[in-house]
Write a protein that binds this DNA or RNA. Structure first.
Length: 561
DNA sequence: GACGAACGCCAC
DNA sequence: AAACGTGGCGTTCGTC
């Protein structure tokens, strides 16, 4: 059954509906402060909580030590359904833009201000009523799914997306264990004693002096790429930028200290003392995850650069005393997903029981693992040049089904058509000007230059759609993986989230679980079992495996990539 | 001073 | 080797 929550008349109304969305008993009125207790009392395996935004309802439940099993996040599901190709005939797809399409404001945890402390209104902390009707929205979404070309796949996608929203809220609640003292020691070892913002740390100052001296440029500002480029060229070095890869090609005494300067300056500005002060409180880093924040369905994060935690600072992620971190990442996830979604048995077999790239080498398609990896990434990204681009045709001969699928996605994108992931998430189409430019370039007034420009844009969009189907389906696998793991952990440890093993970090194909040491091995088994669950959910009995590398460690830095 | 483009690095 | 996907984010530097 569904329990649909809505704020009305200063309280919360919970409307029970059947799985099909029809009425099932009287709506129940709950006062806002009693909501966590109400949810705890009514949560059950067959209950699905329905709300507009998980981030607006779930934090209070978690703060009270509760949790829920399943939910429907209407706003996330609306976003998927609105654009889904398989539901394009639905009333939902045809409806005009309304409040459900717009980004919602932050969840406000109402706190009485000083001025209100002696006010009668002290306990009147309820958020305002909701304007939109979640019952009507749920019904519209259920109709869109049941009337679609692929109800099963869409249902699974919406379930996975909503489970992701629960995971994201729980990870935000728990936070990533972060030892500020370890981080500070790391910074001090690398940069020298802490300095105020805007002051160059001692070690950086020393390296800057060496760089200036070796370039014979006493006034050089090493933080200015333009300044550095000018100085390098004055010294006779033929470089076109100050990018790391370009500098690495050069033989000159200044290169080594310059690269070291850039490395440390990056540490200072991206994850230095300022970052530590801003993002780590009480031993936890609380990044806000944006479920489906990337167009392909991948997650994004808001603030703190959570999805790009440099390897350099990962040693500061340390499990609590008596706890461990279980770090797991899926090996060659995207090629395996591509093999499965395209039904390419030869490619799936290449990854059976071994590193998939080793299997590609064993098949004779290419000679080295590096070549296999370069060619595979090239096939999924649309490489045309370099070694990757050169080897793609050899891969195409060995794995015609897999390569054919991404090739067709690229062609569709070049024509301006949408493509879809396995479960039905649909890519956007280019904006109107893209089509207008194309029409103009091939009309009588079109010039060869216009045609070249248009074709270049078309190929670029084709690379996007080519990658979309693989990256997006891999994101669906990852959602299923996390969702299954979450259920497995909750089943054995039903208490408050942070009292048992719980997810604390996620980056595309990698998860970190914070677990009591005595349960770490059990958690590692569950993580592997959940990966197998995800494979079956998406690809049923297709013979593809999703091996993980799993490490049980005290700190994240100790988990080798 | 605010803003945004360009640059460059980090993650997957 | 440096083109080939999705992003976040901090700095410099030019413009308004």
């Amino acid at each position: 059954m569904h329990l649909v929550l809505r704020r009305v008349d200063g309280g919360v109304l919970a409307t029970p509906l059947t799985d099909a969305g029809t009425a099932q008993g009287e709506p129940i009125r709950v006062d806002e402060p009693r909501l966590p207790a109400f949810i705890a009392s009514r949560d059950a395996p067959d209950v699905r909580w329905v709300w507009d935004d998980t981030a607006r309802w779930y934090p209070a439940v978690l703060a009270a030590g509760g949790r829920v099993g399943r939910c429907t996040d209407l706003r996330l599901c609306r976003r998927i359904l609105r654009s889904a190709l398989s539901a394009r005939g639905s009333a939902l797809a045809a409806a005009p833009v309304d409040g459900w399409d717009t980004v919602v404001q932050e969840a406000r945890v109402a706190r009485p201000t000083h001025a209100r402390l002696f006010d009668d209104a002290l306990f009147d902390v309820s958020p305002p009523d909701d304007e939109s009707d979640p019952v009507a929205e749920l019904r519209a979404q259920l109709d869109a799914v049941s009337g679609s070309d692929a109800p099963g796949a869409l249902r699974l996608l919406l379930t996975a997306e909503s489970a992701g929203a629960l995971v994201a809220a729980e990870m935000f609640h728990a936070g990533l264990p972060w030892r500020a003292d370890v981080h500070e020691r790391l910074l001090e070892d690398a940069l020298g004693p802490r300095v105020p913002y805007g002051v160059r740390p001692r070690r950086l100052e020393e390296i800057a002096a060496v760089v200036r001296e070796r370039l014979g440029d006493p006034s050089l500002n090493p933080d200015s790429p333009a300044d550095v480029l000018k100085s390098l060229r004055r010294a006779g070095l033929m470089v076109t930028s100050t990018r790391k890869w370009e500098l690495q090609e050069i033989e000159h005494p200044v290169i080594e200290p310059l690269l070291e300067y850039k490395r440390l300056a990056r540490l200072l500005t991206a994850n230095g003392w300022t970052w530590l002060d801003e993002w780590v409180q009480d031993g936890r880093f609380h990044p806000k995850y944006l479920v489906g924040g990337v167009v392909t369905g991948r997650w994004a994060a808001d603030g703190g650069g959570a999805m790009q935690l440099p390897k350099l600072v990962r040693p500061a992620v340390v499990a609590d005393e008596g706890w461990k971190l279980v770090v797991a990442d899926a090996a060659q996830l995207e090629p395996r997903v591509l093999a499965a979604m395209s039904g390419d048995r030869a490619m799936a077999a290449a990854g059976d029981g071994r590193d998939l790239y080793d299997g590609v080498v064993a098949s004779g398609a290419v000679e080295t693992r590096q070549q296999a990896k370069g060619a595979m990434l090239g096939a999924m990204y649309g490489a045309t040049q370099g070694e990757g681009g050169r080897l793609v045709p050899r891969l195409a001969r060995a794995y015609p089904d897999a390569l054919g699928l991404v090739e067709r996605a690229a062609r569709a994108g070049e024509r301006g058509e949408p493509v879809t992931t396995l479960l039905g998430r649909t890519s956007p189409v280019p904006e109107a000007s893209w089509f207008e430019a194309r029409n103009q370039a091939y009309a009588v007034e079109g010039t060869p230059a216009m045609q070249r420009a248009v074709e270049s844009r078309a190929r670029s969009w084709g690379r996007f759609t080519r990658n979309f189907i693989v990256q997006g389906t891999a994101a669906e696998w990852a959602l299923a993986w996390m969702g299954s793991l979450r259920s497995r952990l909750a089943e054995r440890f039903p208490g408050p989230v942070t009292e048992g093993p719980h997810l604390v970090f996620f980056v595309h194909d990698e998860i970190v679980v914070h677990a009591p040491a005595e349960h770490a091995e059990w958690v590692a088994e569950q993580v592997r079992a959940a990966a197998a669950d995800a494979g079956r959910l998406l690809f049923r009995d297709f013979p593809v495996v999703f091996p993980l590398s799993v490490a049980i460690v005290d700190d994240y830095g100790a988990a080798k990539d």
